[in-house]
Amino acid sequence: MKRIIAVLSIALAGIVELVDAQSFYNFRTGRDVIASVGTGTSTYFGDLKDPGDYMDAKPNLNIGLQYFFHSRIAGRAELHWFRLQGDDSDSELTGKTRRNLSFRSDNFELDLIGIVNAFPQGARFYQRPQFNPYGFIGIGLLYFNPKGQVPQTDWNEDPLPDAGDYIALQPLRTEGVDYNRLAIVIPFGIGVKYKANPFINIGLEGGYRLTFTDYLDDVSTVYQLHSSIEDPLVQAMADRRHEIDLPPLGIDEGHIRGNPANNDGYFLFNIKIEYYLPENILSVNSKNRGKGPRRNIQRRRR
């Protein structure tokens, strides 16, 4: 939480500095570009989550830029960091608690979103509605990296390397699959903006992510045969029933470890602060263009 507050404070300080440098309180220019910063929760849905379980949310952070193409239609580019986590020990289903798998993952999502607002912006940016609901849909690129905590012992009750640490599961190929840690996602959802003052919106937004991978949690198909695994660390991370004194399932072929019929997904809920940037904020030559008209006026006065 301290890190989240620190990141938001730095972002807000930078925007305040930008506001002061660009004479932000100038109503005469149009403002179609919005910078945003936000935080909220992220919720995982997959093989290590019970149906109907919507709690156990983890943190997320995001920054973005939005541009209005029309009075009601905008596009947005946004970068998210968020954590996902799942643990069979929290399940209310006996089959899952006996499986005893778990993971956590720190993830990054870069997305491009199309936004349709319920009401038009108005002739000027500061004439926008006090409240404005909106819907969005887009496409994104996700980087995910599921990790598991190394148990204190392996099959032979000998200490394992890095016991107690979280290590990446994809390189271990716990199911014998070398899956890609990059995935395409489809974000969609709804939100509402509140005009706090002429230049600032406060927004609430919730969006689900359809993914094209079933390995956000490193769980999808069946157990590997132990006879095909030489590394005791891979054995211990792939089949963790030994930690609760149950016989391993990777001894025989075909024991179910996950459900490949449904891809994993996640939900992001955010509170955001949006700032309307000056008209020429993205232009390198904005200062030069601003000086030109003033010179012409002086010449005409002479």
Rank of each mutant, 00 (worst) to 15 (best):
M1T: 07
K2M: 13
R3H: 12
A6V: 14
V7P: 06
I10Y: 11
A11L: 14
A11K: 09
A13M: 10
A13W: 08
V16M: 13
L18N: 10
D20K: 15
Q22H: 10
F24W: 14
F24P: 07
R28L: 12
G30W: 13
I34S: 03
V37N: 02
G38L: 04
G38C: 14
G40T: 03
G40S: 06
G40N: 04
S42H: 03
S42R: 00
T43F: 00
T43K: 07
Y44D: 00
Y44G: 01
F45Y: 13
F45A: 03
F45Q: 05
L48W: 01
K49W: 01
D50M: 08
D50N: 06
Y54H: 11
D56M: 01
A57I: 03
P59M: 06
N62R: 10
Q66I: 01
R72K: 15
I73C: 09
R76S: 10
L79T: 05
L79A: 14
H80T: 06
W81Q: 09
W81R: 11
L84H: 01
Q85M: 11
D90E: 13
G95Q: 08
F103D: 00
F103K: 00
S105G: 05
S105H: 03
D106V: 07
N107R: 01
N107Y: 01
F108H: 13
D111V: 04
I115P: 02
I115N: 04
V116Y: 14
V116L: 12
N117G: 12
N117Y: 07
F119W: 13
Q121K: 14
F125L: 03
F125E: 00
Y126Q: 12
F131C: 05
Y134G: 05
I139T: 15
L141D: 08
L142F: 03
Y143W: 09
F144V: 05
N145I: 10
Q149I: 07
P151Q: 15
T153R: 13
N156L: 06
E157N: 15
E157S: 15
L160S: 10
D162L: 12
A163N: 06
A163S: 14
G164T: 07
Y166M: 07
P171H: 14
E175H: 02
G176F: 00
D178Q: 12
N180I: 05
L182C: 14
L182R: 12
A183T: 09
I184K: 08
P187V: 02
P187L: 04
F188W: 06
G189F: 03
V192T: 03
N197H: 11
P198R: 06
F199A: 05
I200Q: 08
L204I: 09
E205C: 04
R209P: 02
F212R: 08
D217G: 02
D217E: 09
D218H: 00
D218L: 00
V219I: 10
V222M: 01
Y223N: 00
S228I: 02
D231M: 09
P232E: 12
Q235W: 00
A238F: 00
R240L: 04
H242S: 13
E243H: 05
P248V: 11
I251L: 11
D252P: 02
G258Q: 00
N259Q: 06
P260M: 04
N263T: 04
F269W: 12
N270H: 11
E274R: 09
N280S: 14
I281K: 03
V284Y: 13
N288V: 10
R289I: 10
R289E: 15
R289H: 14
R295D: 09
R295Q: 09
N296K: 15
